[in-house]
Each structure stands twice: as C-alpha cells, then as structure tokens.
C-alpha cells in the first residue's frame, strides 16, 4: 500500500522473490544450452541460434504455466500464497523471456533476405486453412502481444485508473495467451521434434494447469443458500478467531464474515486493490488483511487506515437464535456497520 505512486514498491520479500526467479531462469537456460545440443536429433544438428531460441521459448512456456498454476494452488492450499504475492513481477520477466525468444527467431529465420524481417514473418506462410503447416508463428505473435500488454499494465496505477473489473478483464487475456502459446508449441516445435522428453514436459505442464484450475473450480462456493433480506451465516463460535467465513450472496457477489476476538463484522470478499479474496486473509491489529498483497481494511467500516484511501462495501449483521445473519444488500463502500459483540450473542 502507498499513498503516492513510486516506480516499484521494493521490499525484502520482493527482492528475494525476484532473485530466486531470475536465478531459476538463468539456471534453466544454461542447462538447456548445455544439454540441448546432445538431446537434439543427431541427424539434423541444431544451430546455436536455434538452441538459444528454443531455450528462451520453452522457458517462457514453463514460466507461463507456473504463473497460471499459482492462482489455483493458492486457493487450494494457503502455503502457496507467498508465490502469489509478487506474481506481477513473474509476469513481466516472462514477457521479457518470450520477447528474447522472438528476437532470436527474427534474427535467424528472417534476417538473411532483403525483405523486412517483420514482413517476412507475417507473410512467409499464410496457409491459415490447414492444421498441419498452419502458420504457428502468428499464434506466438498474438501471445507475445498479450504478454506485452499485461506486463506494461501491471503497475498499480493501471489497476486504479482502469478500475479492478476492467483491469482484471484485461488480465484475463493471459488465458488466451496461454492457449495461443500451447497451440504455437503444438503446431510448431512438437510437429518436428524427435525428442519425446519435451513433448512430455509440455503435455504435463498443460495438464497441471488444467487439473489445478479444475480442482480450484470444484472447490469454489457455487450459489447462495438463501434469499430475502437476511441469510444465515453460522453460529459465532464456528468462525475461527481472526478468520472469516465466505458466503456467496444472492446478487452473485461474495461476503466475508470475520471474527476478531469478540467482534464479528462483514465486508465484501473482493479487495479494492486487485479483487483478492479478503475472506481468505486474516484480521491483523483489528484490520482485515488481504492475503494477496496485504491491503488492510477496518472491520467496522471497510476503510483502509489513514493515510490510505481504499474502501470496500460493508454488510449489516444481526443475531437470531444464536445464529449470525447477514443482510443481503451491501452498504456503500466505507459505510460504518457496527460489528456484533459475541458477548451479546449469549444473551439473545
């Protein structure tokens, strides 16, 4: 959180995250370059430039696969949340690795004729009507353009200026980019490769991404259990101290009902920063803390503590027969909603 924009909000965790990421990338590329030549088909030796473009291309594919696994992994198991914390830097580095792959391709396959390399790239193969021999390069270009847009709009300013729904919609294009990358690899490299190891690795990566998304999808709450003005949540003691119970609401939104000691309050489950799941976070020093990037909101009014200005909607709560009930209609962001006192519950 910051009350004024700065280029990058570095801290020790981000340095560590980025350091590990860069070291892992460099190690992968070095190992690929070292082992790639012997692993290639010996009857058709591979040039150094081709080896380098494959090293960066496959690295970008695996990085993109990991990025897409982080979201569902964090939903399935809280221990993966630290991976999510700096995922945007992961995305920017992936875009740069993919760009390096593209530069190697342009400077090798399209650099030795009088035709402009970009024109040659787009015009050399226009057989869009067939599957085998499909111009898979175009799929790579589409994916690279999407990754470039996502990387270029990853700063918090864009999130605030475009608004979370639009920013999030824009960044959902990562799924399209991944589909294009998979098709790019499937119709390109995998059509020619004589080495089954990479076909297996690509397949396993895509299956891991698919399987984890399916598992997270199955775990997500489906529909609201009630209607009308109030719906039942749980008995106060059923909510762990400092944690929340997430409820799908009749209007399609989600509410998070938190317990902080003897206080119980309810906020929108969507963080105002990046729509992170507030209900999967904790109450720290009286503030609900988003598990994704640590944005905080007061339980009593959904406002971030000064000097920060973020707000989320609150929900009114009441107790009926020892059960917490939540109003189905949210209050405007930042509206005070007095938390229930658990001690009250014993007397109702």
């Amino acid at each position: 959180m910051s009350d004024r924009y700065i280029p990058v909000q570095w801290n020790a965790n981000k340095w560590l995250y980025d350091g590990v990421l860069l070291i892992a990338c460099a190690a992968y590329i070095l190992v690929f370059l070292r082992l790639g030549a012997p692993a290639a088909d010996l009857t058709r030796p591979v040039d150094g430039a081709i080896l380098r473009m494959r090293a960066f291309g496959s690295c970008a594919f695996f990085m993109l696969s990991v990025i897409l696994c982080i979201g569902p992994l964090a939903r399935l198991d809280r221990r993966f949340l630290p991976l999510l914390y700096n995922r945007r830097h992961f995305g920017v580095i992936t875009a740069l690795v993919a760009l390096t792959h593209a530069v190697y391709v342009l400077n090798w396959y399209y650099a030795f004729s009088p035709t402009d390399p970009m024109v040659a790239l787009l015009g050399a193969n226009t057989s869009y009507g067939q599957i085998l021999g499909f111009p898979f390069e175009t799929l790579g270009i589409v994916a690279l353009l999407i990754l470039a847009v996502l990387a270029a709009t990853s700063h918090d300013f864009w999130l605030s200026f475009l608004g979370p729904p639009l920013w999030k919609a824009l960044h959902l294009l990562i799924y399209l980019a991944y589909g294009c990358v998979v098709a790019h690899v499937a119709l390109g490299y995998l059509q020619d490769s004589k080495n089954p190891a990479f076909a297996l690795l690509f397949g396993l990566s895509a299956l891991a991404v698919a399987g984890l998304h399916l598992a997270a999808w199955a775990k997500a709450p489906r529909k609201s259990r009630g209607s009308g003005e109030w719906i039942a949540v749980a008995a106060p003691h059923e909510i762990a101290d400092g944690r929340a119970k997430i409820l799908p609401m009749p209007d399609g939104k989600r509410a998070a009902v938190f317990r902080d000691g003897d206080r119980i309050g309810a906020l929108s489950n969507a963080c105002a920063h990046q729509n992170g799941p507030l209900g999967e976070g904790r109450v720290i020093d009286g503030c609900v803390t988003c598990p994704w990037h640590g944005f905080q909101y007061r339980l009593e009014d959904g406002c971030s503590p000064p000097p920060f200005t973020e707000k989320v909607p609150t929900y009114n709560l009441r107790l009926r027969d020892g059960v917490i009930e939540i109003a189905t209609k949210p209050n405007a962001p930042g509206t005070p909603a007095t938390p229930l006192q658990i001690a009250e519950a014993a007397h109702v």
């Binding site: 897409l68 608004g163 979370p164 729904p165 639009l166 999030k168 919609a169 959902l172 799924y175 399209l176 991944y178 589909g179 998979v182 397949g203 895509a206 299956l207 991404v209 698919a210 998304h213 399916l214 999808w217 997500a220 399609g252 939104k253 989600r254 929108s268 969507a270 105002a272 729509n275 989320v312 909607p313 949210p330 405007a332 962001p333």
Partner: peptide, 23 residues
C-alpha cells in the same frame, strides 16, 4: 461501485480455455 463487482464469473469462463482447450 464498479470496483466491487464480482470478478470471478468471467474468470471461470476463461479458465475453460486452459481446462479443456489446451490439453
């Protein structure tokens, strides 16, 4: 109110690409 609209509906739709289309 725009920042508080639920974002997950479209995400589920898009995730179909990776769940079914990619494999």
């Amino acid at each position: 109110q725009a920042p508080y609209r639920p974002p997950l509906t479209a995400q589920r739709l898009f995730s179909m690409i990776v769940i079914f289309a990619c494999p």
